[in-house]
Amino acid sequence: MTGGLLGGLWTASLLMAASSVLFMTGLVIARLISEAGRARRRARREALVADMMSAMDGEADAARLKSEVREPRLVARALLELSTLIRGRELAAVTAALTQAGAEPALLRLMRSRNGEDQIAACEALGLFPSDKAAAALKTRLKRRTSMRVRIAAARALLQMGETPDLNDLLAAFDIGEVHAPLELSAILDEIARRATEAYLERLKSSRDAPALRAMMVGVLGRLGRYEALPVLLGAASDPEPSVRAAALSALGALGHPDAEPIIAAALDDPVPEVRAEACDAAGRTALAALAPRLAERLDDDEWLVRFRAASALLRLGEAGRETLDAAAGRASPRAMRTAQMVLAEAAA
C-alpha cells in the first residue's frame, strides 16, 4: 500500500515534469518555425504593399498581383492597413486592380477559414469590394452562429459597402443576452439610425430589447440630433430601467427641444441620482429658464453629483440662473450654499 503511494507520487511528479518540459519545448520549436515564417511573410507583405501603391498610379503589375492574391490572408491585412491611409480615387484604383487579380473570390474563401482573425480580416476587407456576391456572403455570415466579433465585422463591412442591414435582422443575429451589448455595436447603430431612422425608432418603441441595448440605442439618438426622435425619447425618459431613463435625458439634453420640459421637470425628482443629474444637465442644455427654482431645490440634493450638475445647469441658464445661484450662495442650506459658492468661484476663475 505504502509502496504504491510512493510510486504514485513519483509517477505523478515525473508525468507532470515531463509533460511540462515537452510542452514548452514544443512551443519554443513552434515559435522558432513561426519566426522564420514571419520574416518571409514580412518580405512578401512589403512586396504586396509596393504593388498596391503602384496600382494607385495605375501602374500595377497584373501578373504579380494575381500571384499575390493567392495569399488572401496577406491581402486582407495589407489592404486594411492601406485603407487607413488612403481614400477615394486612390483606394478605388487599388481595389479595382485587386478585383482584376481575383481578390474577391480569394477573400470569400478566406471568410470560410476556421481562424476567427482571418474571418474578421476577410469580412472587413470585403467591405471594400461592393458587389452583390460579397454582400450576400456577408449577410449569410451575419446570420451564422459564428463569434460576435465576426458578425460585427460583417455588419460593418455591409455598412461600408453602402448596404443597410435590416435592424430587426441585425439585432436578431447578434442575439444579445440579458445584459451585454458589445461596444462596437454602438457605432453600427449610429450608422443605421442615420440611414433608416424610422425603422430604428420603431424598434425602440417596441421596448423588447435588453436594458443595456435599449440604453445604447437611446444614446445613439442623442448623437443623431433629429427632432423626429423626440416622442421616442420622451417615452424612454419614463422607462422602468434607470440606465435607459438616464440615457434618454442625456439625449434630450443633446437635442435641446423645449417640448421636453415637463418630462425633464419630472425627472428632477427621480429616485435614482444619475437620472436626476442627467435631468439637471438636460434642463441647462435646453435653456429651460422656468426650471430655475426646481434646479435650486436640487442644490440641496443628497448626492454631490446632482448638486454640482444643478449648479452648473443654473449657470447655463443665463441671468435668471445666475441670480438663483447667487441667492443660493448667500442664504440657502449649508450644503446648497457650499455648492453654489464653489461653482460660482470656479466659473469666475
Partner: peptide, 24 residues
Amino acid sequence: VEYLLAFLALSFTFGITISVCSLA
C-alpha cells in the same frame, strides 16, 4: 526520506506545471 523526496518532487513539479500553463 523516501516520502519527503516524493512529496517535494510532487510539490515542485506541480508548481512548475502551473507556471508552464501560464506561459503556454
